[in-house]
Every structure is written in structure tokens, then in C-alpha cells.
Simulated scan of single mutants.
Amino acid sequence: MKPVYLDYAATTPTDERVVSAMLPYFTQHFGNPSSLYSFGRGARQAVRRARWQLAALLNAEPEEMFFTSGGSESDNWIIRSLAAEALEKNGGGHIITSKIEHHAVLHACESLPQGIEVTYVDVDEEGRLHLEDIEKAVRPDTFLVSIMTANNEVGTIEPIAQIGAFCREGGIFFHTDAVQAVGHIPMDVKKLQVDALSLSGHKLYGPKGIGALYLRRGKKILPLIAGGAQERGLRAGTENTPGIVGLGKAAELAAAEMISETARLTALREQLIEGILKIPGAHLNGPREKRLPGNVSFGLEGIDHETLLIRLDLMGFAVSAGSACSAGSLEPSHVLTAMGQSAEQANTSIRVTMGRFTDKEEVEAFLQAVKTAALSMRGQA
């Protein structure tokens, strides 16, 4: 049996249709989009078309989309820019985020200069944040709330629309890291009432090294890179035309196929959960329903996840213990411990994430492999 990839939350393979759309912009249409002659105009039109494609996926306006290198850059741009503005105008201020955010948000907040205070809000045992906890955390100097749309480890989908409505009413800037959600669940920035949203191309079958920041019309942030006038003067540097084209095509495909793909992946997710929970000592991390379609995070009592991952890899299955950005860390998952698990419990958990090219037979084979590995590790084989 060929190796089975089940770590789509870490990265997705670039869809061949995306690659085909990108290829001409490496060689045939290689012009600089800022150039005035025909080579540049062709590239500029491609960038404009991709901006429209991406905006359509989010129900945004094209001029509200800014291309970046990925989700981490977009997260840092918003947090650092708004913090710098708060320091300049008011001498400091207050940010609210959650304890289960991606490290791009957590580490950006931790690195802010003196004068900026951060409150890290708790989540419940399923990884869900509750609006009342944000309401309690708000202070007169709160200038930013940043909450992820869906958790990258356990797949929990957060109540973004509720938080957005609260922040809009209170005049607080609201940002969501939607890297795991965009292209996989419906995202309408108007209904969600977000002021900014981060996304990354390689999480929705686009290329690596390209992402975007949605910034609601009328909202101001500081430029990220000084230099040219690209991205309306906010992010200088020659545009990554092939990457931008790929992201636009990936967004177009996601919009067209999301309904059918969500149904298919949800069925596979339920098949996998049912099978896992039949294994003695197994438990599901996160909610049974309000989670990403292809995400299953589970623990097996008494079984170290690192050893299990190695065994599964030798058996031909690629899965992870959690975020790819934390691979190699000796610390237990900050997400699972925030959900109330002990370090020992957290270190029994693995994450399985399915995607566009996962099929039922692969799920069945994986279930058999997990059962075999668990029995062997418990000395019952």
C-alpha cells in the first residue's frame, strides 16, 4: 500500500489545477506587475484577477485583500501594527486573545513592548471560547481582540460571529486567524463582522509562501515593509505573481467545491471517530460536531504519542501530534492543557486531518493500523 498522508492541517498538496494556473507566470508571463509595458500589464491583470477570486471566497471587496507570505506574517502584521499605534497614541493599551491560539499570535503578543498588556482568555474542555469571558476581559483601553476561527490542533470552531458583533458594537478592532478555516468552511467577513482576517495558501491546496490579510475598508494599519508602492503602499516588494495566481485559483476551486467536499469529509470524519472510539482507552479531543470537517484529534490512554507516531509512520501513515510549528517540542500541547488535560493526557494525543485526496479505504486502513499499533504497544498483540 502506498504511503497515506493524513496531516492536511500541517499543509495540503498543491492541487494540479492550481499548478497549471501558476506555470505560465514563471516563464511565459514573467513580467513585473509594476512595469508599464505589456509584460507587466499581463502580470498585473493576473494579480488583479486573483485578488477578485480571493475576495469572492470571503464575500469581501478586492481592495480589502492584501497579499502576504502567509498566515504568520498576516497575524504579526495586525498585532504589531495596532500595538505600535496604541503605544504612539495612548502610551499603551490592552489586547485580548485566547490560550489556544496559533503560536504566530501567541508569540507576537508575548514579544510586544512594555505598555501593551495581553489577557489570554480560557476555553472549555472542548476548546471552545465563550463570549462572556471576552466581555469580562474588556477594559477601557482594549484596542484589539484576536481569536482564531478554528483551532489547528483539535478543530474546534469558535463563535466568531458572536464575538464580531460584540466587538463591532463596542468599537474594538476584531481580528481572526482563519488559516485553518478558509476554504474548508463558509467564511463571510460581512456576516462575521471581522475587521481583519489572516489566511494562508498552503492550507487550501495552494502553494506555500503566499497568504493574505483581509482588512475591512476604512480600517488603517501601519505599512509592513517600506520600499515601493505595492499593495497600496502597505507592503513593498515585487509581487509573487505565480504564488498569487495559485492562491486565487485555489480560492476559486474552494468556493466551487466546498459544499460537496464538506459533506464528504464530514462523513469520513465520523467514520474515523466511530472506529477510534471502539479502541479501549480512546477519547476524542474537542467537540463531536462543531469542528472542522476533516479534523479528528484523539488520545489513547497509556500510549505515548511520539512512539505511536513513529510506528504509524513505519506502517505508512503520516499523522501528527498537533501543530507542525511545534514539532520537536518536549512541552505538552498548549491547546490540550488549556482544555484541562494533564501533561500526561496531552502526551497521548495525535491529530489526524483529512483532505481533498483522502478516501474511505485510507481511513479504514488507518483504523486497522492504529488498532494493531495500540495492541502491540500494550503487549496484547
Rank of each mutant, 00 (worst) to 15 (best):
K136A: 14
L277E: 09
G171Y: 05
S81T: 13
I134S: 03
A318Q: 13
T68Y: 09
L375K: 11
G286W: 10
T97N: 02
N90W: 10
D359M: 10
R51P: 05
E64T: 07
A161K: 10
I273K: 11
G115E: 04
A381I: 14
M258I: 08
K203S: 04
A256Y: 01
F317D: 06
G211C: 04
Q193Y: 02
L129D: 00
D133A: 02
E88Q: 15
F67C: 14
D122I: 09
P3C: 12
Y37R: 01
V370L: 15
L6V: 15
T11R: 12
E274Y: 07
I172A: 15
E344Y: 10
P24M: 01
D141V: 00
L23S: 08
Q345E: 14
E274Q: 13
A150F: 01
R288T: 04
H305Y: 12
R269D: 03
P24F: 05
K290C: 04
A324F: 03
L336W: 00
R139N: 05
G91K: 05
L23F: 08
L131W: 00
L23N: 09
Y25V: 07
V138L: 14
G71L: 12
D141M: 01
V319G: 03
V189W: 01
Q45H: 06
A9N: 08
V179Q: 11
V319D: 05
D195M: 03
E135H: 11
S200E: 14
I303D: 08
A137S: 11
G379M: 03
E135N: 08
Q28P: 00
T119N: 01
E231H: 12
A104M: 05
A327C: 03
L54A: 14
V363L: 06
N151R: 06
E231G: 11
A226I: 12
G218L: 09
P113R: 03
S342R: 03
M187D: 06
R139M: 08
T337R: 01
F166E: 10
V179Y: 09
K208N: 14
R17E: 12
L224I: 04
G227H: 07
G170M: 12
N32C: 02
P33W: 04
K203I: 07
S146E: 01
T142I: 00
Q230D: 14
H283V: 07
T149W: 02
S98R: 14
A181Q: 11
S320R: 07
A250P: 01
G155F: 06
I163Q: 00
V182Q: 01
G322Q: 02
A263Q: 13
G164C: 02
N90F: 12
L222M: 14
L308R: 07
M187L: 10
V189P: 05
A181F: 08
A46D: 11
A346V: 10
A43G: 04
E231T: 12
E261D: 12
G40N: 06
I78C: 14
R264Y: 09
E73P: 05
S349M: 05
T149L: 05
A46W: 05
E257I: 07
R44C: 11
F26S: 03
H130D: 05
I273E: 08
F67N: 08
D359E: 15
S329T: 09
G209V: 00
T142C: 02
G286E: 08
A346L: 06
L131S: 01
E117K: 14
S111N: 12
G127S: 04
